[in-house]
Amino acid sequence: MNDAPQIKPPPKAKSTLRSRLAAVWDSDLAWNFRHSPVAIAAATTTLLIFIAAFLAPWIAPQNAFDPGAVRLDDGFLKPLEVGSTGITHVFGTDSQGRDLLSAILYGTRVSLIVGFASVGFSMVLGVSLGLIAGFVGGRVDALIMRVADVQLSFPAILIALLVFGVGRGLIHPTQHERMAVIVLIIAIGLSHWAQYARTVRGATLVERNKEYVQAARVMGRTSGAIMGSHVLPNVIGPVLVIATINLALAVIEEATLSFLGVGVPPTQPSLGTLIRVGQQFLFSGERWILFFPAAALIILALAVNLLGDWLRDALNPRLK
């Protein structure tokens, strides 16, 4: 009897980790994933793009954000040509002599940073407002949800353009380049919060009358604590699905804004900026300048979308 408690602790830690992993492996979600080739392909692609983009400074042949590293002499090199700096330009170079592969890696990183940050921003905003609306109810609920309705009646890209324009107007012109990414994140973030708010409010309306919430109330917990530590974990599932799909949307929206020339500047290009620049050379034969960034954007958006789609189906109890 005495030996047992002494021996137990070490294997216990091991076994819990292992059993937790085993539990994850055995879960419906993982089983579903293992048996869905589309999900595996999408996840692998997404993961590879993420790794490539975030390791860009180490794996890209050229620092695409350093104008000094680019040689104008190497402009318009075809894919696989070797430039004056000795780099083999696998995807060719653009009009400024910048290696396109490097530009795409760095550009994807900008696009993903904007995507993740704006999704995070709209998620925090939308979930908080949705929780408050659903939990407090009454006039607060009506006010928040009417604002959300108004917002949903505009195309998201219009709202982003509007926010971006106002944002730029407020910032001193010399700061534009530095602030461009932040303004872009806020603009895209603000145009997507309503979806989160609606979803969370709906779920909160269901949850707030359940026994565990009443129990917490009887115990004297504050509304804020109940919302944060009791209701939130129970309504967050669908939010994650929306977030995944919105990541792809945010990346496309960023590309659209940059394509329209209001996004990130050409010296620090995102995928959208690269497509805007490449589009000028569509008629003159240098099609690779447009093709590769556009292909990268399509693959990224498709992979994330498929992953989000699978996640939605896998988490939907009605489809089981």
Binding site: D66, P67, G68, V70, R71, L72, S95, Q96, G97, P266, T267
Partner: peptide
């Protein structure tokens, strides 16, 4: 704009 970009690279 392309001329400016070219100059940015050369001045760097």
């Amino acid at each position: 704009e392309a001329i400016c970009q070219a100059a940015v690279g050369q001045l760097a």
